[in-house]
Nucleic acid binder design. Structure first.
Lengths: 120, 120
DNA sequence: CAAACACTTGCACACTTGTTCAAATATGCT
DNA sequence: AGCATATTTGAACAAGTGTGCAAGTGTTTG
């Protein structure tokens, strides 16, 4: 008994297997995709994005970051922790002050990865 | 009566006014920052990022997008609406099928804006 | 040492968001 | 028309998230 011919029908299945296979190739490295998404997510929140943009020219202490971004010190500090964990920013302590700056090395790494992912 | 000299004290105020002013310059265009954040936020969710990455090579119907990204048709459709609204993707109808593809023109615009913002 | 200060952190809470389910819409087929 | 398929949409709900508040840490200053 032969199979029915495959019509462009979906029904829980696939219309164009070839294209789906090709699309999946861009999704093969799951960890990398999750990492990319995590980075984008961090940049997708105004307070955090403003924080990053504020640090482009100079390092700033938390206090000045708070002033620059019009956010409370607490809010900024909370967000800085997330940025720190993702290594988007680094910090240096000087007495009771903490100066944050962009972690260029790691960010360049990330950008490089994203480029590799999308440019091939 | 003279003002006290400005010591490196924060207390709701600013430590280094010059650096804060400079930082604020990068934040002057508020609308643009919000738009950037919105784009990043959209890319910061795995289902949506996978959707975008799936569309890099070919247009795909919702059904195949669902297969490629391992998400339900409904979930993908919901996310596609957001991507559509932000004009990250466009679509064309063909009978009962809807084929989505990347809205290159608009995306290139966005990338250009972001570059202008961060490279100067 | 005590007080002031810069910053961090845990908790609480309002708000947002992604998914599922079911129903609705739209098109194609017989 | 009636049924099947492809997609969209709305409601509901759980899970996630950003912020303020208050307490905590570590450092400087008097």
């Amino acid at each position: 008994m032969k199979k029915e011919k495959i019509a462009p029908i979906c029904k829980v299945n696939i219309v164009d297997e070839e294209k789906v296979r090709e699309a999946r190739k861009n999704l093969s490295n799951k960890d990398q995709i999750l990492e990319m998404a995590a980075i984008f997510k961090l940049l997708g929140e105004p307070t955090r994005l403003k924080t990053i943009l504020s640090l482009i020219d100079n390092e700033l202490c938390v206090c000045d970051l708070s002033a620059a971004t019009d956010s409370s010190v607490s809010a900024v500090s909370h967000q800085l922790r997330l940025l720190r964990n993702a290594r988007l920013v680094k910090y240096r302590k000087d007495g009771k002050m903490v100066y944050y700056s962009i972690d260029d090395e790691h960010i360049n790494n990330v950008i490089q990865k994203i480029k590799e992912h999308t440019e091939e």
